[in-house]
Design a protein around this nucleic acid. Sequence first.
DNA 1: TGTACATCAGTGAACGCGCGTTCACTGATGTAC
DNA 2: TGTACATCAGTGAACGCGCGTTCACTGATGTAC
Lengths: 231, 231
Amino acid sequence: MGHTARVNDRTPDPAASRQERKQRTRRALLDAALELLEEQGFSSISLRQVTRTAGVVPTAFYRHFADMEELGLALIDESFRTLRAMLREARTGGSMDGRAIHNSVEILVGYVHEHRNHFRFIVRERFGGVASLRQAIGGEIRMFGSDLASDLARVPALDRWRGEDLRLLAGLIVSLMVQTTEEILEAPPSDLAGYEETMSRARRQLRMITLGLGEWRVAGRADATTAGSRG
Amino acid sequence: MGHTARVNDRTPDPAASRQERKQRTRRALLDAALELLEEQGFSSISLRQVTRTAGVVPTAFYRHFADMEELGLALIDESFRTLRAMLREARTGGSMDGRAIHNSVEILVGYVHEHRNHFRFIVRERFGGVASLRQAIGGEIRMFGSDLASDLARVPALDRWRGEDLRLLAGLIVSLMVQTTEEILEAPPSDLAGYEETMSRARRQLRMITLGLGEWRVAGRADATTAGSRG
DNA sequence: TGTACATCAGTGAACGCGCGTTCACTGATGTAC
DNA sequence: TGTACATCAGTGAACGCGCGTTCACTGATGTAC
């Protein structure tokens, strides 16, 4: 809440190269935007507010971004880049089963919790007023759903499912994860009990979904396959 | 796209009373805002844009709303009032079973489809930059979840469920409905095939959720291991 | 190592613009008698 | 029914303000020799 780390604060740090300092200012602009986005929507924060918060003159902005939209896209990229890497890593190791799906959900929710400001921005702008940001965020979430669907295809219990049904199932899970992300962001970051509560709710809701999967008729006929979610 | 029904267009209609004309201007302001909200977020549309689109001078705005926020709250109220009535009616008739839940979902999705502009606004501002609107929308959705949970309590198959679990299940279904609403709004209103496709997906996803409910252990132990499917 | 020049991140003044809000007003509609 | 007055939805001018963007600039950092 308003520590507002400005980029200069008049300690020029002679050890830093020109390039390093430029990066630092860029960082300050991104952080300033994230700070302002705690309170406002992206389309209502101004370039001048951002530079003011970053401790820099308005015109300095143009050394880093062509306009606010470009800054917004940079924030989206930042938000998802590390998460994608973490999930890719989690998914390469070992076999794919119900446990692995649960793991991915835990990784995502933990990640969101640790990057609250980024994801508050993401949730706000997912259907916000700026079309290019909406598209970029939509693309990331869709990609996330596709990855999940192909993971699900590797779960033994689901091996006879049609691709279309796997995508529906993935959509259901993504929908739960979006909902959970929103819940995480509603509580203050210090509220660890609330965080655990949300996690626990998400786990049980995920289990509610997976429990019934054994009942789903694969080919459209009533041949009930076995094996629900097995821990 | 941009038919922009202005309030005056210089046909004063001598038959209308002063009160009727005032209502008409109010309506024109709300419609103007909805039209602008197709393209922009609420916090970035201006009072002057709204009055310009409505065909009225900026200062006339104050005869109807204290500020833009008050207009926004009026739009939220409009969006949900009729829907609430329809769902209440749907739920008073007859017994409550899986069929009734499906019916409610159909009503909601159809309603959203026929009030696209209102619900685009709702979806945008649900996590948008204006706190009071966020709260109002959150309250409506939460109320919706509570109603659904108490409906679920009357479903025979769920009669032994704990309230907490019913709320989780209701949350899951609300989450699916929000997701479906977002899908409906992504396609143009003329795309009836897309609408039916979305409806069909929603139905099957709802079935995926409800299929497993027989497996849920009512008294709920805390570990993750679960039995396989029943016949 | 020292000098002369190039680069370029950040500065500060200035611009025209749309904004929300104020104010005194107009003139049609409504009401009292 | 006709007259005199009150109401009040909508008008139009004016205000001060923050905005995005332009421009010429400064002075520390980087580079060539």
